[in-house]
C-alpha cells in the first residue's frame, strides 16, 4: 500500500493523500451526486464549533473536544453554516455538475470579492490551478466577519482547489 506524501508539518498544508487517509475528502462520485462538505482538519486540537454550529447534527466531535470531526454525509444538507463557524478556516463545500465545479469557501481578506469577479483558483499550497468566477458572497452578520465566497471553475480541478488567489488591496 502506498504511504501518502505528508506535507502538513513541512509545507503547512495537507496533501490529498493525507486528507484521504484521514477520511476527510469526499470522492468524485459523491461530488457529482450532491454538494459535499470538505473538512480539512486532521490534527487533534481542542475545538468543536463545527459540531455546535450544525443544525442537523451532521458533524460529530463529541468528548474529548480534541476528537477529529466526523461527518455524516446523509444528514448534511450543505447549508454551509459551519464554514464561517470554523475558527480554523478549514471547511469548504464543493460540487461537480458536468464540466463545472462550484466551491463555497471562507474568506477574511480585503478586497471582498463580488459576484462576477474573474479570479484565480488556488490549491492548498497557493499554486494557481485554473481560472474561476465568483458567483456569490455571503456576508451575513452571523458569519462574524468571515465572508463565504461561492466560485465556479473547471470540474477537473475539484479535488485540488480550496480557495482563490488574494488580490492586491
Amino acid at each position: 500500500m502506498n504511504v501518502p506524501e505528508r506535507t502538513l508539518k513541512t509545507k503547512g498544508a495537507p496533501s490529498l493523500g493525507e486528507l484521504e487517509a484521514a477520511g476527510m475528502l469526499p470522492g468524485l462520485e459523491d461530488l457529482k451526486a450532491r454538494a459535499c462538505l470538505c473538512i480539512e482538519c486532521v490534527e487533534e486540537i481542542p475545538c468543536n464549533p463545527c459540531e455546535t454550529s450544525c443544525p442537523r447534527g451532521a458533524i460529530r466531535v463529541g468528548s474529548p473536544i480534541t476528537n477529529l470531526p466526523a461527518l455524516d454525509r446523509d444528514k448534511c444538507t450543505a447549508c454551509g453554516l459551519c464554514i464561517p463557524a470554523c475558527p480554523g478556516i478549514a471547511i469548504t463545500i464543493k460540487r461537480v455538475e458536468g464540466e463545472k465545479a462550484t466551491i463555497r469557501f471562507p474568506w477574511e481578506y480585503l478586497p471582498r470579492p463580488e459576484a462576477g469577479d474573474e479570479v484565480r483558483m488556488v490549491d492548498r499550497l497557493g499554486r494557481v490551478v485554473c481560472p474561476g468566477r465568483v458567483t456569490g458572497v455571503n456576508e451575513a452578520a452571523r458569519n462574524d466577519r468571515t465572508a463565504v465566497v461561492t466560485a465556479e471553475f473547471a470540474s477537473e480541478h475539484v479535488l485540488s482547489v480550496v480557495s482563490m488567489q488574494r488580490g492586491p488591496r
Binding site: 502538513l8 508539518k9 509545507k11 498544508a13 490534527e43 488556488v122 499550497l125 480550496v162
Partner: peptide, 28 residues
C-alpha cells in the same frame, strides 16, 4: 516565508494551511 529550525512545523495545521494556501512558503 516562515522559517522553522525544527524538522516539523510547530503550529496548528489549520493555521499553517491558511498561510500555505495564500502561497507563503514554509522552510523547516
Amino acid at each position: 516565508g516562515v522559517v522553522e529550525a525544527a524538522p516539523t512545523l510547530g503550529g496548528y495545521g489549520v493555521h499553517t494551511a491558511k498561510l500555505a494556501r495564500a502561497g507563503v512558503p514554509f522552510h523547516v
